[in-house]
Design a protein around this nucleic acid. Sequence first.
DNA 1: GTCGTTGCAAACGGTTTGCACCGTC
DNA 2: GACGGTGCAAACCGTTTGCAACGAC
Lengths: 132, 132
Amino acid sequence: MLEDTSLRMTKQRQVILEELRAVTSHPTADDMYDMVRRRLPNVSLGTVYRNLEILAESGVVQKIDIGGTKKRFDGNVDLHHHLRCTLCGRVDDAHIDTGVDLEAIAAMNTDYTILRHRLEFIGICPGCRPKQ
Amino acid sequence: MLEDTSLRMTKQRQVILEELRAVTSHPTADDMYDMVRRRLPNVSLGTVYRNLEILAESGVVQKIDIGGTKKRFDGNVDLHHHLRCTLCGRVDDAHIDTGVDLEAIAAMNTDYTILRHRLEFIGICPGCRPKQ
DNA sequence: GTCGTTGCAAACGGTTTGCACCGTC
DNA sequence: GACGGTGCAAACCGTTTGCAACGAC
């Protein structure tokens, strides 16, 4: 819950972190800009980008580089997979256990040194299903 | 091996398709531009983008929207997973069988209608391993 | 007081698009 | 001959960066 000691904690950085941790959605930098601006009307978009990058680098939050044009951020750093709705673009957490060690399988069947993996499901969210 | 009938086959479109099918790498639009320009020096980047988009939409090639800033294209439309090297950015096919039906697991444990999934491994390719 | 951080605006990189001409069907 | 495709260049959009002022430590 506490941050790394080396991070200087400015008002902007703190609000960005609080806002990101307050939601379970996976906001884009632009979403975050809107959220933060409600509390700090003069914050700049550059500051939001810079801080999200710094927080992600120090492991306090997660940058999820899922399909689509925009990067998204996640206050939950536990590793977990994601669900993306093709219709509305919404991204949810997928709390699933595949029961297999995918990285071990990949390590055995390829000549790469496997560092990590990303598993993403594309589908239709419950909110969009009625529409289609 | 043959294309959909509805596609008008211009020289540019044909060369783009041939060049993409001739490689097993996963070129970006810019890579494709270079490859095509060797045979059609006056081709424009816009044409390459337009045709890759059209070919992907009609299912003749695959647009792989893997992590990173640039989109990549794949002449192999069979579904398969990918390996990305963090050091050089190279993308290879991962010919692996996970042995489990990931989409079925996701369907059972989430409230999304699952359409497809994407599995990507991040690691270090054999070419880069000696360097690090 | 130092030095990392901010707001601003301009730059950037990848991709898309408007337009007039061209070539396939 | 019609109409989709092309080359060109400008526009676009998400993101990054240079800079001078600012504020946390």
